[in-house]
């Protein structure tokens, strides 16, 4: 554990809590892509199956359980409790275009051809692209509420901090995980355009982020 890793995990947690609280307090999930949230729940489910096989640390177990619980709570709020506010007509990204290549890749490129390893690899690849329905939705409607953009900022920050963590671990422990690094860099690149808009529009202005 190093400071980048811890800060990354905290950013990730903050992002998820921001989104959950926003939906809970406003009793609305308008502008939120339910598809992205289902994909994230799928990411956590397939990645954290090792909860049943190995024990790493109390921190590790608690965080995994918390991420799983919060992601399912978010999906529940969007599709059950506040489904009347869900903008399904704008959440039209074709998820199968992500799932099919990601499933294929995880069978081709993995560390071991075992069910748990393939599912872990699938979760890493899927996480890299899971935000695309949300970014697509923002592009389609041309705007996002500021709280939604804060959520995206912390989600992107989490990935950027993980890259710093990998650089640190490479130099201090000679440890590197190529599948995680390549996917993490790809995931972070998706956020670059958003980061630019966030700093130039959301933080300098007020309220919604509107696209040119």
């Amino acid at each position: 554990m190093n400071v980048f890793r811890l800060a990354g995990d905290v950013s990730h947690l903050v992002a998820i809590i921001i989104l959950l609280l926003k939906i809970w307090r406003s009793k609305s999930c308008a502008g939120i892509s339910g598809k992205s949230q289902v994909l994230f729940a799928l990411v956590f489910t397939t990645r954290y199956l090792d909860l049943f096989t190995v024990f790493i640390s109390v921190y590790n177990t608690v965080m995994k359980v918390v991420f799983l619980a919060l992601s399912y709570a978010t999906v529940y709020l969007i599709y059950m409790r506040f489904r009347n506010s869900y903008n399904s007509e704008n959440d039209t990204f074709r998820v199968e275009f992500l799932l099919v290549p990601v499933i294929g890749l995880s069978f081709l490129e993995n560390y071991a051809f075992t069910p748990l390893e393939i599912l872990w690899t699938f979760s890493i690849f899927l996480e890299a692209v899971a935000i695309m329905p949300q970014l697509f939705m923002i592009t389609k409607t041309g705007e996002a509420e500021s709280i939604t953009t804060h959520y995206l900022f912390f989600l992107g920050l989490y990935r950027a901090l993980y890259i710093a963590n990998w650089v640190w671990r490479y130099h201090t422990e000679s440890f590197y995980d190529l599948i995680a690094i390549v996917s993490g860099v790809v995931q972070t690149i998706f956020f670059c355009d958003f980061f630019y808009l966030y700093f130039t529009r959301v933080l300098r202005g007020r309220g919604k982020m509107t696209l040119p």
Binding site: D50, V54, I56, N60, K64, Y111, W120, Y162, N165, D177
Partner: peptide
Amino acid sequence: DRVMGGKDEL
């Protein structure tokens, strides 16, 4: 080892 190492991260 690698497999354990990969999974200590979230």
